[in-house]
Amino acid sequence: MDLPRIFTIRESSHRIHNPITAEKLATIGRALRLRPGARVLDLASGSGEMLCTWARDLGVRGTGVDISSVFTARAHSRAVELGVTDRVDFAHDDAAGYVADEPVDLASCLGATWIGGGVPGTVDLLRRSLRPGGLLLLGHPYWRLDPPDRATVEGCHAADRSDYLSLAGLIGQFGELGHDVVEMVLTDQDSWDRYRAAQWFNLRRWLDENPDDELTEQVRHELRTDPASYVQHEREYLGWGVFALMAR
Rank of each mutant, 00 (worst) to 15 (best):
240 W>M: 03
98 Y>G: 03
92 H>R: 09
57 D>V: 05
171 I>G: 01
244 A>E: 00
217 E>M: 04
93 D>M: 09
133 G>K: 05
122 T>K: 11
117 G>I: 06
11 E>N: 13
169 G>Y: 15
186 L>R: 09
36 P>I: 09
184 M>G: 01
93 D>F: 08
51 L>R: 12
153 V>I: 15
29 G>F: 05
240 W>E: 00
6 I>C: 01
57 D>F: 13
30 R>I: 02
100 A>Y: 06
127 R>F: 03
117 G>A: 08
142 Y>H: 07
51 L>H: 13
132 P>A: 07
78 R>W: 08
207 L>Q: 09
132 P>E: 12
136 L>Y: 13
114 W>D: 02
205 R>Y: 03
53 T>I: 14
234 E>T: 15
43 L>T: 11
115 I>F: 03
98 Y>M: 05
44 A>S: 13
39 R>P: 00
241 G>E: 05
85 T>A: 09
130 L>V: 04
183 E>D: 12
159 A>D: 07
14 H>V: 03
58 L>A: 08
97 G>F: 14
218 Q>T: 12
104 V>T: 08
246 M>S: 11
72 T>R: 07
91 A>W: 11
59 G>Q: 06
80 V>H: 15
201 F>T: 10
53 T>G: 01
62 G>Y: 04
216 T>Q: 09
201 F>C: 07
63 T>W: 13
168 A>T: 15
122 T>G: 03
127 R>N: 09
132 P>L: 10
122 T>E: 02
53 T>Q: 13
124 D>P: 00
158 A>S: 11
32 L>F: 13
71 F>W: 14
235 R>E: 01
32 L>P: 00
243 F>L: 02
145 L>K: 15
89 D>A: 11
55 A>C: 10
166 S>D: 06
62 G>S: 04
183 E>R: 12
64 G>N: 05
43 L>R: 06
208 D>R: 14
68 S>W: 14
206 W>H: 04
233 H>P: 00
103 P>T: 12
65 V>L: 09
88 V>N: 01
163 D>Y: 08
45 S>A: 15
1 M>W: 05
164 Y>D: 00
119 V>W: 05
236 E>F: 04
95 A>E: 00
33 R>A: 12
73 A>L: 06
68 S>T: 03
201 F>W: 09
84 V>I: 06
13 S>C: 02
189 Q>C: 08
147 P>F: 07
136 L>W: 07
174 F>E: 01
86 D>Q: 14
59 G>Y: 10
78 R>E: 01
215 L>N: 03
84 V>Y: 03
54 W>E: 00
46 G>I: 02
43 L>G: 00
148 P>V: 06
52 C>W: 10
49 E>V: 11
211 P>N: 14
173 Q>S: 08
14 H>K: 05
30 R>D: 00
68 S>A: 06
48 G>L: 12
164 Y>F: 14
168 A>S: 15
230 Y>G: 00
214 E>D: 14
83 G>Q: 06
41 L>Y: 02
